[in-house]
């Protein structure tokens, strides 16, 4: 298919939003589930965009910004891979294979952007001495444009210059062992994402709950929502029965249900 000028403008605007979303990490427009779906909608094939988004989301499950560290960039990976899958008529699996190196490239670009914004911080320091509120606000929000352009410029370039036939012939040049291997790897590449999430949460003495989920998940044919319900009940029962929490509770003679009372009590003690 050919991209119209109007679609190109929409691609530029949407990829700017995902770029800003990528650094903000608030509305989650940069997550594949959202970014691929909307890009697919713009390009006229929303279903393909949603399927690619869902597949890529599973791989990106553990891509998160912890502290000052950056995760692989899901914004750039989502927009570019969707363009190549829909405009370049590639398979979802090949789209995933394209997305991963792009995510690594996006990560490098965001490191540059976050270094550039140090200058914005210094400019704000000077404005603070003059109590110039408007200038400080402007500096803060204009830093978003650096991040927006970081994604929208490469994405728009890909949309303009990469013709479907070019992508086709490039990928056809790949031998079967590579494409077949990528498809096989696509089945278990998610473990890296799982491992990143697990390392965040894992508390040694709570690991039995992980293995319980693993065994039940292997043998029971329940929906994920049902498993979520079971997990929630387990969590509630665990917290209620845990002597660690009830001990603390009896130390202060306050009902645990009324947080308001708790706070009032604390103030009186001071």
């Amino acid at each position: 298919m050919k991209i119209t000028i109007f679609q190109l403008i929409l691609i530029f605007i949407w990829s700017s939003i995902t770029g800003a979303g990528s650094v903000l990490d608030e509305f989650q427009t940069h997550r594949p589930l959202i970014a691929c779906s909307v890009t697919g909608l713009i390009l006229g094939d929303p279903v393909k965009g949603i399927i690619l988004g869902g597949t890529l989301e599973l791989i990106a499950l553990g891509w998160m910004n912890i502290g000052a560290a950056q995760s692989p960039d899901s914004a750039l990976a989502s927009t570019i891979s969707t363009i190549l899958v829909i405009v370049g008529s590639q398979s979802i699996q090949k789209g995933i294979a394209i997305a991963l190196p792009v995510a690594a490239a996006g990560q490098v670009l965001t490191v540059f952007a976050r270094t550039i914004t140090v200058a914005f911080q210094h400019a704000a320091n000077r404005q603070a001495a003059k109590a110039n509120f408007k200038a400080i606000e402007w500096l803060h929000f204009s830093a978003l444009f650096v991040q927006a352009l970081r994604v929208s410029i490469p994405t728009t370039l890909v949309a303009i210059f990469v013709s479907p036939t070019m992508v086709q012939s490039m990928l056809n040049a790949l031998p079967d062992v590579v494409t077949g291997g990528l498809t096989v790897a696509g089945g278990f590449i998610v473990v890296v994402g799982y491992a990143m999430v697990m390392n965040m949460m894992s508390v040694k003495y709570l690991m039995p709950f992980f293995y319980l989920g693993f065994i039940l998940g292997g043998y029971l044919k329940l929906s994920l929502l049902a498993f979520g319900g079971v997990g929630l009940i387990l969590a509630l029962v665990y917290v209620q029965l845990n002597p660690k929490f009830s001990k603390q509770m009896s130390a202060t003679p306050v009902s645990n249900t009324a947080v308001e009372n708790d706070l009032a009590e604390d103030e009186l003690e001071d």
Partner: peptide, 13 residues
Amino acid sequence: TVLGLFVMGVLVT
């Protein structure tokens, strides 16, 4: 954490 670990176990398999 209990909820999260349990769900992760399910997802892995």
